[in-house]
Simulated assay, not measured.
Amino acid sequence: MASPRDPSKRTPEIESWMNGADKLERLLDRDKFKAWGFVIYRCTYRSDSEWEEFIVRIHKRVEEYLGYYNGLDLVGSFAPTVLEDRSFEGATVISLREKFNEWAVTAIKEEQGIDPSHLWHLKNGRYRFFIMVDQEALDSVLSTPEDDIHEGFVRLVNAEWKPEELDEEELAERGGPGPEEEPLEGCTEEDVGWMKVCWGHSQMPGYLQLDGSFDWDMYYSRPPVIQSLS
């Protein structure tokens, strides 16, 4: 077997581009990020113990992923900020997207020391996507074995998404309005701006895979499909 031309410093037997921890480190260095991870909106308050179990699973999964690549040095900067407010229970994706975008403008300066005007030039998705966990999602995760990362889901929301608005000329070029999908929170478009993703992929490797609209289009599946991000 040929020796790697660009061996990973963490796993010298393979190329650096094949090591998930190396890829994460390069991503953080590129944007000069001190903290990483998708923000989580807690939208269920039935049980604090169930919520704590969910958060433990998220952290454990990230540690397992990074540990596989000998990258536990990056665990300390993992910051899956949980935003909690009982008013979030029953909230729509639209309302949370508005709150998140307001939060992101100030958080990027407070957390990373980066001017908000640079927000849309970053490769990291921390301020462009967020995770939403309601009771349905929480039940789906906790009802599966702890080591089953493919069953159970969370909602991953694209904070940049906006409803498609076409003028008459654009509609004519398309041959008229497309077929309407079953409404999801009132949206009948194919892309509703959020998707169900496997809980075990939601932070890692999802954080490495999603950094903008192009990657969103590559992975997007309309609910109720549960999408893999590996």
Score class of each variant (00 low, 15 high):
residue 104 A to R: 05
residue 105 V to Y: 06
residue 105 V to W: 08
residue 105 V to H: 04
residue 106 T to Q: 10
residue 107 A to P: 00
residue 108 I to L: 15
residue 109 K to V: 03
residue 109 K to P: 10
residue 109 K to T: 10
residue 110 E to Y: 10
residue 110 E to R: 12
residue 111 E to V: 14
residue 111 E to D: 14
residue 111 E to G: 09
residue 112 Q to S: 13
residue 112 Q to F: 13
residue 114 I to L: 08
residue 115 D to M: 07
residue 115 D to Y: 11
residue 115 D to I: 05
residue 115 D to N: 11
residue 116 P to S: 03
residue 116 P to N: 10
residue 117 S to I: 15
residue 118 H to P: 05
residue 118 H to S: 13
residue 118 H to Y: 09
residue 118 H to E: 10
residue 119 L to M: 05
residue 119 L to Y: 02
residue 119 L to T: 00
residue 119 L to A: 01
residue 119 L to G: 02
residue 120 W to K: 01
residue 120 W to D: 12
residue 120 W to N: 07
residue 121 H to A: 13
residue 121 H to T: 15
residue 122 L to V: 04
residue 122 L to T: 03
residue 122 L to G: 04
residue 122 L to P: 11
residue 123 K to S: 09
residue 124 N to Y: 10
residue 125 G to K: 04
residue 125 G to C: 12
residue 126 R to I: 03
residue 126 R to W: 06
residue 126 R to Y: 07
residue 126 R to G: 10
residue 127 Y to R: 03
residue 127 Y to A: 00
residue 127 Y to M: 01
residue 128 R to S: 08
residue 128 R to L: 09
residue 131 I to P: 00
residue 131 I to F: 11
residue 132 M to D: 09
residue 132 M to L: 14
residue 133 V to Y: 03
residue 133 V to D: 00
residue 134 D to N: 12
residue 135 Q to W: 02
residue 135 Q to H: 05
residue 136 E to A: 13
residue 138 L to D: 02
